[in-house]
Amino acid sequence: MSADRILKWVTASFAMIVVVLLCGIGIMLLVKSWPAIHTFTWHFPLTRLWDPVQGAFGALPFIYGTVVSSLLALMMALPLGLGIAIFLVELCPDRLKGTIAFLVELLAAIPSVIYGLWGIFFLVPWLRETIEPWCIEHLGVVPLFEGPPYGIGMCAAGLVLAIMILPIIASISRDVLETVPNDQREAALALGATRWEMIRTAVLPYGRSGLFGACFLGLGRALGETMAVTMVIGNRPEISTSLFHPAATMASVVANEFTEATGELYLSALFGIGLVLLSITFLVNLGARWLVLSIGRLPQGT
């Protein structure tokens, strides 16, 4: 065998490790959660009760908590992230660009556990003492703002997640906007568009699939985020309409209860939650990948 072929096969076998790992993770989770799947079947993700002492394992509160906290985060981070991207690409003077982009990158580099620490000692007290009492007093009739101000809870988790996914959404959106060709901008300007009208009619529509992809990637990150959420959400497996009520996510229940899980079924149920989490993030990332890859395929004129 020639040296070239050897190199090809060696590198190929190293590359294949990634594929094997991905499959291995899926299979491992499926095998380990089999007892729970076997016992609860499709009731598992639809049952509201999670009481390990009684042997009741329903994943619904965690799925609810994960989805709601992530959507909450996306609702806050999306407009801000898009705003940052628009500012960086369309408005920002060149000499500021690098600095702001670096600061946004830095926000992305802060480890999750530090967000959690900051959340516990600053965000949560601030919410408990300032924001939540005000909301409860003035907007308390709305079910979203009911109940006592705990500080910890869905609202705190959503806020921390929003801060964490903001740099992801901002930097991917920025990359997307930068791929919009200049002749699209000039076409709009030459028709007598103001700068915002140019962004709205030419820039954003051109990059829309990439922008959706940025959203999905941010969402995927939020769904799987563990430490910061575990530290501020309160970890109570309950479904409440109030944003100020403690809740739990799939990642947070695994982080909290995994090492203390006694009995095969309990551990298996936690693996089962891991499997649900894996499936959801997998689908979201699949969507993101498809959308981000498709920006290269937009019609380019001739």
């Binding site: 991905l22 989770l29 563990t226």
Partner: peptide
């Protein structure tokens, strides 16, 4: 790309089992 998107906690329980 998919491995990159897997929540790190899931990787944690995978290595626990593995």
């Amino acid at each position: 790309d998919m491995l990159n998107g897997i929540p790190s906690i899931v990787i944690g329980i995978f290595v626990y089992g593995f």
